[in-house]
């Protein structure tokens, strides 16, 4: 649940970008950092290791203005995608309010997407959260690579693989170019705020 500071009249919401390794989670946050400068309230913090892989998380603070006199602060995080960083992913997921699942559109990454979504489902369960109830948006990234002749999964296949049961809002995207990044974030924020309003009884 969002961190609510009644004294300061501040609400902190946490949105986590989840997905398999190299799917473009950090690229999403980098694009948001560059493009949404008015809303960004601090530096983007990255913890990269060899080969541009995220070691622990990326972090980007944003401000969304006021709702009912409360200053709404948003914190965007990414998790490390590599399978071996399972414990870190779980730590980053703690007290999450909204989720963006970034799936890789490359056909060769089909299984990795499914395993990562399953991993998310399991980790949420351990915090007593349901993947069916938490604000969640799916993003099918790297659609631009079709131009380069790399075999991509059709949008329908990705929907069937990942979103058949969830029925979450989903967007095709190219995080490198920025296509779909804003729509994904805005939809996730909308769902997260809707859930927050419900929690706060607003």
């Amino acid at each position: 649940m969002a961190n609510i500071n009644l004294k300061k009249r501040e609400v902190e919401c946490k949105i986590v970008y989840y997905g398999p390794g190299r799917c473009g989670k950090t690229t999403n946050i980098e694009y948001i950092f560059k493009t949404f400068q008015k809303q960004v309230t601090g530096d983007m913090i990255t913890t990269e290791t060899d080969g541009d892989r995220t070691l622990f998380f990326d972090f980007l603070p944003m401000g969304l203005g006021k709702i009912r006199g409360y200053d709404i602060r948003l914190q965007l995080y990414t998790v490390p995608g590599q399978v071996k960083y399972s414990a870190t992913r779980k730590m980053v997921l703690r007290e999450v309010d909204g989720l963006v699942f970034v799936a890789d559109s490359l056909a060769v990454r089909r299984k990795k997407n499914i395993l990562s979504l399953k991993d998310l489902h399991e980790n949420l369960k351990e915090y007593g959260l349901s993947i069916f109830k938490i604000p969640l948006v799916l993003q099918y990234n790297k659609r631009d690579l079709a131009e380069q002749g790399i075999p991509l999964m059709p949008y329908k296949t990705m929907e069937r693989d990942l979103n058949r049961q969830l029925k979450a809002p989903s967007f095709p995207a190219s995080a490198v170019k920025g296509d779909g990044v804003g729509d994904t974030l805005k939809t996730c924020i909308k769902l997260t705020l809707k859930s927050l309003k419900k929690q706060m009884g607003w």
């Binding site: 060899d50 080969g51 892989r53 622990f56 972090f59």
Partner: peptide, 18 residues
Amino acid sequence: RIDASPDMSEVTEKAQNI
């Protein structure tokens, strides 16, 4: 080389603050 890279490297002070 990537597999052998340490899982728990020291990160920047800003990241530690987060």
